[in-house]
Write a protein that binds this DNA or RNA. Sequence first.
DNA 1: CGTACGATCTGCT
DNA 2: GCAGATCGTACGA
Length: 204
Amino acid sequence: MKKIGRDFYLREDVVNISKELIGKFLVTRFNGKLTSGMIIETEAYNGSMDKASHAYNFRRTARNEVMYGVGGASYVYLCYGIHHLFNIVTNKKDVPHAVLIRAILPKDGVETMLKRRKLKTITKKVSDGPGTLSQALGIKTNHSGTPLNSELIWVEDRNINFKKSEIEAGPRIGVDYAGKDALLPYRFRLTEQTVNKIRNEWYS
DNA sequence: CGTACGATCTGCT
DNA sequence: GCAGATCGTACGA
């Protein structure tokens, strides 16, 4: 049940960090409402050399400025005019690494999350996608730049560990424009079998 | 300024 | 399985 400290985010290997974030808990507390979920899917965006990244070729704009800041902060941007996608900035200042959180399993504050999602029951639909999980946790673009050692958004290690074989790697989603980089195995996800097992344990 | 488009989701077929 | 939603952002004129 420990909030992850800055050192975790300051490391250089964003692909490895991306993998290690599987099984950690993403937590928000807005207006006194605490909500959380276990991270089950992530994608790494590997800096200025990664054609799929917003920071490719050191592209630097008002939107992605926070990617150039020190690791351990959020980067939230609007996608398709509708979806607020949540990323974690890693590495030192001026190295624009980030991890996109793509899916979580709801844990704390389920009622609040269902309300935000306008749903009645816990199903995959609650937070099984980058846009939906942000909505469930109440994260919006105005939270971009929020430090993850704050009292608003943070990541916890609750000592849940998985075997190597339970984490699958594959190409990232929706980045066909990135040419060769679209094929890199920078996406990590718990196997469906493991996810289903946890669903049964938590929601039965 | 004008325009094209996206690290997606939903509902309908 | 597929098209439509929907708008901030990037980039060129």
